[in-house]
Simulated scan of single mutants.
Amino acid sequence: MPPTDASADAAIAPAAELGPDTGPRPAAVASTDSEDTLDLRLPDDFIALFAGEAEAQRGSTGKAAGEARGDAPGEATGEYRGMAEVAAPVAPVASAGDDLLDRVGSWGSTATPVGVFHLVPVCLERDLPLITRWMNDPAVAAFWELAGPESVAEEHLRLQLDGDGRSVPCLGVLDGTPMSYWEIYRADLDLLARHYPARPHDTGVHLLIGGVANRGRGLGSALLRAVADHVLDKRPSCARVVAEPDLRNTPSVSAFLSAGFRFSAEVDLPDKRAALMVRDRALRDLL
């Protein structure tokens, strides 16, 4: 079960993902921020999506920056160069012409303080061995709970790739090198929405950093900020990017704060008490 945590300079930056919907869940703790406590009703089409698929899908979800296995810098760079132009297709969506995440695969690259970065939607045939190696790193497995043979990671990925497009698993490619795993998902259509006052088009992120050489030097924070702003640039209907790191994971929470997220509330999720972190479009130039 993946996580939502990001680490700044800690050795580990886990993330936390919601698992299967196994029963009633505690209600979210209200934020002291009045904007986040508005009693907003989700549109009927969002509710309908929940009803039909809540039990079938693991909400991809909630985490950002767990860290993974230590592959050598530069590993497997060749076939990923230029992937901004030749990205794998985005997962199928609910209906023709209705892309729930505005075609992540076509977002292209973005300049960051640490290099040129882009999100490449996962292709199982190409990426499964690499993602499996990352998930089997003990530091990652403790939070994502996806260690084991390739079939374990494959099942997790297929739930998203064969779904309706509300969650898109991606490799994070930095200067031509795949070095992180991301899940960009519709938080308002996810099981997470049962635990906080979701707004239409809220977009969530989960992240793990795949190489030991890339950990513990603030890379997670730099990429979190860049990706959150990239989401806001490419999804004009989205006003907030959210994440839910484990409240006990101080390095992860700190990384989100460094990336321009604000702490909004504590929420009780099935597997943890989480810090709801929010990056607001309206505040992006101030934080």
Rank of each mutant, 00 (worst) to 15 (best):
A6P: 14
R41E: 15
L101S: 02
A87D: 03
V241N: 02
D164K: 12
A259P: 03
V93H: 15
F46A: 13
G82Q: 00
G216S: 03
R25M: 11
L247H: 06
R58I: 10
T32V: 15
P236D: 00
A56S: 09
N249Y: 02
A141S: 06
A51N: 07
A96K: 13
L192K: 07
H230L: 01
D188A: 03
L189Y: 06
L49Q: 09
S258E: 13
A91C: 06
G148S: 02
L157M: 07
I12H: 14
Y80N: 01
R199T: 15
A11G: 12
G176S: 03
R81E: 04
E183L: 01
F263P: 09
A243V: 05
P3R: 15
S151L: 09
V90F: 12
S34W: 14
S180Y: 01
D164W: 11
R81K: 03
E125C: 12
R240K: 05
R133F: 08
D102A: 11
A213R: 01
T61A: 10
A111Q: 14
A54P: 04
D127T: 06
M135C: 14
S237A: 14
E53S: 07
V173F: 00
E183G: 05
P89F: 06
D71T: 14
G62R: 08
F263S: 07
L224D: 02
V140Q: 13
M1E: 09
G260D: 01
K272F: 04
D98P: 09
A68L: 06
G52K: 07
A6V: 15
W144D: 12
A30W: 13
S252W: 02
T61P: 08
L191S: 11
P3M: 13
G62V: 09
K234G: 06
E79Q: 08
R133Y: 06
P236F: 00
A222L: 10
D271F: 05
H206M: 07
N214Q: 13
A15C: 15
L232Y: 00
T110S: 10
A265E: 02
A147G: 05
G82C: 03
G165D: 00
P270Y: 00
S109M: 08
E266R: 10
L286E: 10
D280P: 08
I12K: 15
P73S: 04
D36Y: 11
S254V: 15
L207M: 09
F117L: 11
E53Q: 08
I47T: 09
A54V: 08
A11W: 13
P129G: 06
P138N: 05
S60M: 13
G108C: 03
A28T: 14
T250D: 08
A76G: 11
A6T: 15
P236C: 01
A8M: 15
L287I: 15
L192H: 09
P113W: 04
L276M: 03
L224P: 04
R186F: 05
K63H: 14
G74P: 03
P2N: 11
D45R: 10
V205A: 06
L101E: 02
R41K: 12
A28S: 13
V253H: 00
A141G: 07
D229T: 05
N136W: 01
D162K: 01
L161Y: 00
G211I: 11
